[in-house]
Computed example of a mutant assay.
Amino acid sequence: MSSSDIFIGETIGTALLILLGGGVVAAVVLKASKARNAGWLAIAFGWGFAVLTAVYTTAPLSGAHLNPAVTLGIAITSGDWSDVPVYWGGQVLGAMIGATLVWIAYYGQFHAHLTDKEIVGEPSAEAKAVEAREKGAGPVLGIFSTGPEIRNIAQNLATEIIGTFVLVIAVLTQGLNDSGKGLGTLGALITALVVVSIGLSLGGPTGYAINPARDLGPRIVHALLPLPNKGGSDWSYAWIPVVGPLAGGALAAGLYNVAFA
């Protein structure tokens, strides 16, 4: 596959992933959404179906890595690093496009949610509320990126490493196509089910980013979008869902080379 195919495939695929994955979170969280309060099961399965749709759509173009940690794991096991920057560039761009599309699709719901006094506070307290939120996560940041329920750097980092390790070892052992450079037809289904499993079993502490592009791209979009009362983008936490998944992917590749290759 050519570099242009890889870039286009990863951009389209990651955009679909974030559109459908971020979309299910928006549906569950935002005021005036018909799916509001549908719960964690809806989110976990929504992300799994998002992976399934994105992978089946773009696997013929790029192998549908859609995740820098997966790309890193495949590069370590295959020894081929030539296309890693192209994959990563397409993944981050696609994640930003997908997050922007979520905002467009739920534009009215974002406005209703972020102008609700019960959610953002009384006008008399607005200045204090904004100041407090700017130091951490704003009220809709969770639609765009992840954050911990308990802020403990060691635990949060370990959770992301463990979750991504499970994902990447499953991809490397069960999901790759015959070329070993991307996901095959059966691999797409396996990967989607693994993502659902990770969400249900390991997603509670941090929201299971398990994908640096999935978290970083939408966080940038959150920081740039003209959302009223949106609060901060929690940049002090942003390195964890980048470093943790990359470390987890590398560890999974190391185990694969020792035990399976």
Rank of each mutant, 00 (worst) to 15 (best):
E134L: 15
Y208C: 02
A75H: 07
H222W: 13
A137R: 14
F165N: 06
L61K: 02
H111V: 13
K230L: 09
V194D: 04
G175Y: 12
G13K: 07
T191S: 11
L114H: 00
S201W: 02
F45V: 15
W239S: 13
G21A: 07
F49W: 09
L255Q: 06
T115E: 01
T173Q: 13
T191Q: 06
Y208P: 01
L200R: 01
E118Q: 12
G184Q: 00
T77N: 11
I240D: 09
V130D: 14
S201V: 14
G98F: 04
A192H: 10
V120Q: 00
A95Y: 04
L183V: 03
V102E: 08
L183P: 03
T57H: 09
H222P: 12
P228V: 06
P212Y: 06
I190C: 02
G63C: 10
V84Q: 04
I198L: 04
A95V: 09
R36A: 01
S62W: 04
L251R: 05
V195A: 09
S233L: 05
S62D: 07
L246H: 09
G217Q: 12
W40G: 01
N156S: 15
V84I: 14
G232K: 02
L72Y: 05
S33I: 00
E118W: 00
N37P: 00
Q155D: 07
L216W: 15
W88F: 14
A64K: 09
L225A: 13
S2D: 15
S62I: 07
T71V: 07
R214E: 04
L16S: 08
H65I: 03
T191N: 12
A247G: 01
L224N: 10
A252T: 07
A35L: 15
L202F: 13
V140Y: 00
G248M: 09
K31A: 01
A188S: 12
L52Q: 13
G79E: 13
V24N: 03
E122Y: 07
L16R: 03
T71H: 08
K31W: 00
Q174T: 12
T164D: 08
K31E: 03
A127F: 05
L101Q: 02
V168T: 03
I161N: 13
L30R: 00
L202R: 07
G89C: 07
Y56K: 03
S197N: 10
I143Q: 05
A112R: 02
D83I: 04
D116H: 00
A259F: 14
K181C: 01
V51M: 14
P218C: 10
D178M: 12
A15T: 07
S124C: 01
G9N: 11
G217I: 08
G249E: 13
V166P: 05
L200F: 12
N152Y: 01
G249C: 10
L20H: 08
V102K: 07
N156L: 05
S201A: 15
G121I: 01
G248H: 05
A238H: 03
V84M: 12
R133G: 13
E149W: 07
E126K: 15
N257E: 12
L93C: 13
A32V: 02
A188W: 02
S233V: 08
S124G: 15
D83R: 14
L251Q: 08
L167M: 14
I76H: 05
A75Y: 11
V120I: 06
I6W: 07
